[in-house]
Design a protein around this nucleic acid. Structure first.
Lengths: 203, 203
DNA sequence: TTCTGTGAATTGTTTCACAGCC
DNA sequence: GGCTGTGAAACAATTCACAGAA
């Protein structure tokens, strides 16, 4: 199910190119997966294709978006407005996929009265209030590692049930709360691993 | 093998806490994996543990770092100095794991004579020269989607063999070149998916 | 004839459970 | 007694290959 967002983006690109129909083969090459795998993935959502023809791009896109939950708008808050928080606040990929950043928070007083990406940076103590007022259920943590667990606890206390964690720590949260972690350096490390292999084979 | 970096970070945290030995159980809970899986992972690298005792934290860390290729220094360039490129240039997690950002590049003329994270932003046309001079084999792309394939082609032409792609496009590269893609919104979409499930169960 | 949807076969991963070493 | 290393078992993911709809 982690592949649905990938299909979704490829379909959006096809919509922009005014392509109305595509085969599993087309979508597979566009997303870099095996066509049989793609068909099996899609068949779990239902039979949205037509044999001998392919899939209706618009229709399939809507069906996947509905499955992922992107036909509704998700209010999101970002805590920790350092370099990364800055980048995330400005990231267009969130808004274009149905995520709306409703507030930026940072505990540091030097952010008082500053704006990032058109939103005021608000003091961290207002967390509960914001979450309640805007019915936020998804929070993003882009603080340093030391602060992350604290922020997570406060988020959970305020009623947030999904956390995207960019801080390099494992967060402990109560059952029922989802955490996903993104570590920008892990992918680089995987590349280095392969790079090292290449160097060993042909020294 | 995608888990080795995770173990590595947990071990580094243990080193900082002056913990000399740990069991597979300890490391497993610290990283959130099953202890049997962890032992099996580590056994592929060799027998670095002691039965009845556990693993020597320092020794194990070195062995994993060597396996991943982090005992050497990897020069890295970043192309595309927007918000994300900015954040990446300043990201301490790269340097602390043996990656050295040796150059920042951007095609936009308004970056001329500016500095980011203590490095000058250089014109994109200098790519080949920089890659050759510094023996760079890893490149990071944080440009908009339209520019990404072009940048990748130029990188490959210049001799880069591993690319970390933050742009929302699938890159096509010749055999022998590794590409890994990071999409900051995919993780959010996965959270939204689970969030939607929760809402359906208890409406 | 083209292309989906899907059983069956294959391949890969995770967990169990325990022998063997400290 | 505690803990690693590892076969064997259970589980999951992927690919093959083809029947059948358009």
């Amino acid at each position: 199910m982690a592949r649905l967002p990938i299909y979704l983006r490829a379909l959006s690109a096809l919509v922009e190119d005014n392509i109305g129909t595509c085969s599993s083969e087309d979508l597979a090459t566009a997303t870099g997966v095996n066509s049989a795998k793609l068909r099996k993935d899609l068949s779990y959502l239902g039979s949205y294709g037509t044999r001998g023809v392919g899939y209706d791009v618009d229709y399939l896109r809507y069906q996947i978006a509905r499955e992922v939950g992107l036909t509704q708008d998700w209010p999101v808050i970002i805590v920790g407005i350092g370099n990364l928080g800055h980048a995330l606040a400005n990231y267009s990929g969130f808004r274009s996929r149905g995520f709306r950043v409703v507030a930026l928070l940072d505990a540091a007083p030097e952010f008082k009265d500053t704006e990032v990406a058109g939103l005021p940076v608000r003091p961290f103590v207002e967390l509960e209030e914001i979450v309640r007022a805007q019915s936020v259920s998804i929070g993003v943590i882009s603080t340093p590692a030391q602060a992350a667990q604290d922020v997570a606890d406060r988020m959970v206390g305020a009623g947030i049930t999904s956390i995207l964690n960019f801080a390099p720590t494992v967060l402990s949260v109560p059952e029922g709360v989802d955490v996903r972690k993104v570590d920008l350096s892990i992918e680089l490390q995987i590349l280095a691993y392969h790079e090292q292999r290449k160097a060993e084979v042909a020294p």
